[in-house]
Nucleic acid binder design. Structure first.
Lengths: 197, 197
DNA sequence: GGTAAATCCGACCATATGGTCTGTATATAG
DNA sequence: CTATATACAGACCATATGGTCGGATTTACC
């Protein structure tokens, strides 16, 4: 693998585990047995480095785990349930889980770095749009009750997912997941179509 | 006000706004026109300082905004609704909102500082216990459906609140709040007692 | 008023960090 | 074979940070 890509991969790993401000460039270079010269040959600054990571790795990761799985013509509530279940199962099996990457970075950069925040918010928006679209399609196809506010449901889903991933890092992730999923299904039952097809 | 308390108050302000690792002791001292000597006379280290802030300020803050308001013998779903609404309203009106303090610190310290994480988890547990208790009492008093899993509901509520506070920092906090509350009520409607009293 | 404890000052230190710069090995092109 | 761009090494720099320490000042108490 090219040096530049190895730097980005290792960079994301460490930024996710230790946070952006608490991860030095030397930390990343040490792990890869590379030098300062190599880093500043490929990137302008630490911030530029992180922005590229967001666009090249983070955005794709979010897409593959949270957006792509909910595309399709099936019942969106079923798709979202499975999507969240899978994502949380990965976290449960992960020895060292640090929560949702996207949520963590938003927390870290909020009010500190507007440039990076714009990039992160862009990903959030893409996720939101896809969620709303999926729910609206589900409403059109008769899976959701016609009174459901899809924007509101999307916000609620994003919130709960961000939050539970944070909570899971504290203690008993498997139990937290189980409890969360049970109430997610409860909520979904309340917004699904009442017409018995 | 005593110097020690002023340090803690200003410390919490800055730690909340900029994060623990990105706030230097000099930042705090500069704002208070105090010296290093004053700081290390009152506190052993930056970590000790933060632990005391958690116990003296953060724990009380969480208690007064998220726990105390849901105590009582009324319908817990009504109490929680109002509690969340009030807390989010404060955030909306706050020019610079940085999300839920507790959630932010958990994100920042997770996997980095076990000592501080223990103190933060303690607060989470207290909140959780009080939520579960309130819900169980509500079930006993006929406000909640008797099939409701109160532990699961508490986890779901904590998750969604943590998450929405993070989301609100990104954009359109007022809209996010409105949407969130509408779906919270939707969820509550699905777990309230079905018996018409 | 003298003494001692409490409170605070600020110079200083070791270390870490983002970033710069010069040099060097390799590869590619003419 | 030479020249030139690519890709990386590593010494170096300015600055920042957590923490130390001797001393000055204020307060409390007899």
């Amino acid at each position: 693998m090219a040096t530049m890509q190895r730097m980005q991969t290792t960079g994301l790993e460490l930024f996710y585990a230790k946070g952006y401000y608490d991860t030095s460039i030397d930390d990343i270079l040490k792990k890869l047995h590379l030098s300062k010269g190599a880093f500043y040959y490929h990137f302008d600054s630490k911030e530029d480095f992180f922005v590229q990571i967001i666009q090249n790795l983070l955005a794709r990761k979010i897409y593959s785990t949270l957006i792509e799985p909910i595309e399709g013509h099936d019942n969106p509530l079923t798709l979202i349930t499975k999507c969240f279940d899978d994502a949380m199962e990965t976290a449960v099996h992960n020895e060292l889980d640090y929560g949702c990457i996207l949520s963590n970075f938003i927390t870290e950069f909020n009010g500190k770095n507007d440039i990076i925040m714009r990039h992160l918010n862009e990903i959030v928006t893409v996720w939101e749009v896809n969620l709303v679209t999926a729910l609206q399609k589900g409403k059109f196809n008769g899976y959701l009750d016609r009174h459901v506010d899809c924007e509101a449901a999307a916000t609620f889903l994003m919130s709960s997912y961000f939050g539970v991933r944070t909570l899971m890092t504290s203690a008993a992730p498997a139990a937290k997941k189980y409890r969360f999923m049970s109430q997610l299904r409860q909520y979904f039952k309340s917004i699904e179509s009442k017409v018995i097809s």
